[in-house]
Amino acid sequence: MRLESQVSSPTVKRRRLSAALRQLRVECGLTAAEAAKQLDWDPSKITRMERDEWKRPAPHDIRGLLDLYGVTDERRREALLTLARESRQRGWWADYQDVFRSSLPDFEAGASMIRSYEALLIPGLLQTAEYTAAVLRGGQVLGEAVIERRVQARLARQQIISREDPPELVIVIDEAALHRMTGGAGVMRAQLEHVIDMATRPNITVQVLPLSVGSHPAMTGGAFLILDFPSPDDPSLVYMETATDDLWLETPEELRRYTLIFSQVQGLALSPDESVHHMAALVDRLER
């Protein structure tokens, strides 16, 4: 497993460290319970580490594992210890832990490509502040201070679009989301104009899935994201959000399934140029 990377996301680095430690343990023929016993650790500690169920990897724990697994190559040891140190850093999104339920923003920050299918809303990475506030007011009873805080967090999350090395965004939006007057005609018109503007960027592709398509492969599962990362050592992830929880999928079969669904809805959607023209026509209609 290669360990060198320019990835800046502490979450992605911790995930890679977890995978590397599991690989080392398997290579030396130990079970997680056997390794924990030799280090006089709780039997579940190594399992949690390898499942990425930890927050701040301790370098002294990593050294103990490397000694146990017989890793003597100094470059390899230092690469793993660097991963441990860097994965302890706070991502920007840590300032919004009261808002974000999961590490999605940090995974987005480390992604090289984000594929998004959205059925009911404009995707979060393309939302205007006014649209986000309207969504929040419609979804639940929240004070204006809480709404403002969540809007700020959403806008901060969008900064990856404008950074020096932005990820590629490929977005399919169900046409139903474009017709829902979230926040009223004025807010919706400005939101559509913003999506059209974003679609002109070289790293952003937006396609509209027209209502005329009828039933389609993504109808039963709802909205989802597929995140791909620059290194083959960081497997892709599927993310879905529910009203009460966040779901992460990463098995090869799950990834194949959602990649296929995305490819199918993308094939049914209007082309990028047709999608821009379609949204522009909706803007004209709202202006009238």
Rank of each mutant, 00 (worst) to 15 (best):
P57Y: 03
M113I: 13
V206M: 03
P10M: 09
P167F: 02
A58T: 14
W92D: 04
A199E: 01
Y96C: 08
V283M: 02
Q6D: 13
R154Q: 10
E86P: 10
S215G: 12
Q89V: 11
L282H: 09
R85I: 06
E130D: 15
T31S: 14
L142M: 09
E118F: 11
Q97L: 11
H216E: 07
P123I: 04
I46S: 00
P210Q: 04
D42C: 10
D42F: 07
F224R: 02
L17H: 07
L83C: 08
L209T: 07
S87A: 15
A36H: 01
T128E: 01
A281F: 08
A223V: 07
D273Y: 10
A20Q: 08
D284I: 04
S215W: 12
D245R: 12
F262R: 02
D228W: 06
S236Q: 06
E78R: 10
E34T: 02
T205Q: 11
R101K: 14
E193A: 02
A145Q: 09
P105S: 10
M113R: 15
S231A: 14
G138K: 00
G138S: 06
A223C: 10
L169G: 03
P105C: 09
R48A: 07
D67G: 14
K45P: 02
E193Y: 05
A145I: 06
V265N: 03
D61Y: 10
A133W: 01
Q152Y: 07
R201M: 13
